[in-house]
Amino acid sequence: MIERKQLKDRTQVTFVLPADDPDGPVSVVGDFNQWNPAAHPLQPQGDGTRTAKVTLPARTSHAFRYLAAGDYWFNDEHADSHDGTNSRIHI
């Protein structure tokens, strides 16, 4: 799931996954963090989910994917669109 919170000229995007699916650590990686898995690891929350927050400029579009343990890459089914390989979010 992807949540958005509108700020003045930016949008705070929260990437949300279940706490245990998939197992192990997961990061959101994309063109907004130079595809760096260490930049935005998802953190456990009290409600049984794990999340990572990213603030992005207004009127932009970004490619992203999730990277889980074991070099397991996957897309977000709730993304705004997909470009073949990546999920996309439109701000």
Rank of each mutant, 00 (worst) to 15 (best):
M1E: 14
I2M: 11
E3K: 11
E3F: 15
E3V: 13
E3R: 15
R4H: 13
K5Q: 14
Q6A: 12
Q6H: 08
L7F: 04
L7C: 12
L7K: 12
K8I: 04
K8E: 14
D9Y: 08
R10Y: 03
R10A: 14
R10C: 09
T11Y: 06
Q12K: 13
V13L: 11
T14R: 15
T14N: 11
T14L: 11
T14W: 11
F15M: 09
V16D: 08
V16P: 00
L17R: 06
L17C: 04
L17A: 00
A19V: 09
A19R: 04
A19K: 13
D20F: 01
P22E: 02
D23C: 00
D23G: 05
D23R: 08
G24D: 09
P25N: 09
P25F: 09
V26S: 00
S27Q: 04
S27E: 06
V28M: 01
V28K: 06
V29K: 06
G30M: 07
D31P: 12
D31G: 11
D31H: 08
F32L: 02
F32P: 00
N33M: 07
N33V: 10
Q34L: 11
W35C: 03
W35R: 03
N36W: 15
A38G: 13
A38M: 14
A39Y: 13
H40R: 04
P41S: 10
P41G: 14
L42C: 09
Q43V: 15
P44V: 07
G46C: 02
G46A: 09
D47Q: 02
D47C: 05
D47F: 10
D47Y: 07
G48P: 07
G48E: 03
G48S: 11
G48Y: 10
G48T: 02
T49G: 00
R50C: 08
T51H: 07
A52I: 04
A52D: 01
K53D: 15
K53C: 06
V54G: 11
V54P: 04
T55R: 02
T55H: 01
L56Y: 10
A58Y: 00
A58T: 05
A58W: 02
T60E: 01
T60W: 10
T60F: 06
S61L: 07
H62Y: 03
H62I: 01
H62V: 00
A63E: 10
F64G: 00
F64Y: 13
Y66F: 14
Y66C: 01
Y66L: 03
Y66H: 05
L67T: 06
L67F: 07
L67H: 06
A68Y: 13
A68D: 06
A68G: 15
A69K: 12
A69M: 12
G70L: 02
D71F: 08
Y72Q: 08
W73K: 03
W73P: 10
W73I: 13
F74L: 01
D76V: 03
D76M: 07
H78M: 02
A79M: 09
A79I: 03
A79K: 03
D80L: 09
S81C: 00
S81I: 07
S81Q: 12
H82C: 04
H82W: 08
D83Y: 10
D83K: 10
G84W: 05
T85Q: 12
T85C: 06
T85M: 12
N86L: 05
N86Q: 10
S87N: 10
I89R: 00
